[in-house]
Write a protein that binds this DNA or RNA. Structure first.
Lengths: 157, 157
DNA sequence: GACGATTGTTAGTGCAACATACAAAAAGAG
DNA sequence: CTCTTTTTGTATGTTGCACTAACAATCGTC
């Protein structure tokens, strides 16, 4: 065996570095997935004490921004399907952060709105998001942040 | 900005295009999540006929690149924990793409290697990845791709 | 009024991340 | 060399999320 690679102690800095993942390092999708994973982990870490996920915070945020929004509208903003949206809204409603109401102009739709507890939780969550964002943005200049957001937008728009 | 604005419920009448997501549009994490979602969706769409997920392809790819790698090593490369790695390896082994073997130099470890079917599937998968990447990279210049990968690496490294 | 489309809903499937616990093997300390 | 700690693989269970398929109520249109 030519490669004694069993030396995987936590402090081993992997001298091979870029060769570790070979051709994969040119795959944009791979880097997006890894970056998302890193962001996801730090987010959940930051939000353990609030017991909220990214999706849940985003939903609270968007409902606050769009009072009386219907679930379909919310799903479109978040690029989720109806079933997934249902599950998230159910969870937030069960925890008393969100209320469903009857839509006056369309009997099929329901309105979504934050409760007082929801508004309060959102305020707390926003502070945590700021902290999370500080961690994330710390590796970039302001110019780079703008550029990064612009490129990411090109992907999801 | 030609933004194909979604038709929201009539109860949110005065929202202008770019205000759709308000302050959220300055949150890097939000854009990473949306971009990841878009990439994820296109990936699964591209790979329905192969019935493979991103993770599974990555594992096949990395095992091919690192013959006899142990699950722990794989987990480190992919930034996953052991339990998650187990689940993915189990699936790939059950489908005959991967084999576990005994490690000669460490009784705790097991070696991971591709079967012939695994190698063949990986070859097919790589073609699909190339197609998927073409879709992804089509919105960027080569210079931008390099810049994007570099910035994403700063996040996950 | 009938018909097709939309909306919310339920149920079920699959993947993945995480935590916990356990056994076997290795590494380290005395 | 023992004794202890760490590492590795494994099993189990929970949670969150994405997706599909089906269904009822409602809306818009013809």
């Amino acid at each position: 065996m030519t490669r004694p690679k069993e030396i995987l102690s936590p402090t081993t800095p992997h001298v091979e570095g870029d060769d570790d993942i070979g051709e994969i390092r040119d795959i944009v999708g791979f880097h997006i997935r890894l970056a998302y994973g890193a962001v996801y982990r730090h987010f959940t870490e930051t939000f353990t004490h609030l017991d909220l996920t990214q999706k849940q915070v985003s939903v609270l945020w968007l409902v606050d921004l769009h009072p009386d929004i219907a679930q379909t509208g919310l799903a479109q903003l978040m690029r989720m399907d109806r079933a997934t949206t249902m599950a998230i809204v159910n969870r937030l409603q069960a925890r008393g952060y969100l209320v469903r109401g009857k839509s006056l102009d369309d009997g099929r739709k329901q309105t979504l709105n934050l409760t007082d507890a929801g508004r309060q939780m959102l305020a707390t969550a926003k502070d945590a998001v700021v902290e999370h964002e500080r961690w994330l943005k710390s590796r970039f200049t302001e110019k780079e942040v703008v550029s990064l957001i612009e490129m990411l937008t090109r992907i999801h728009d």
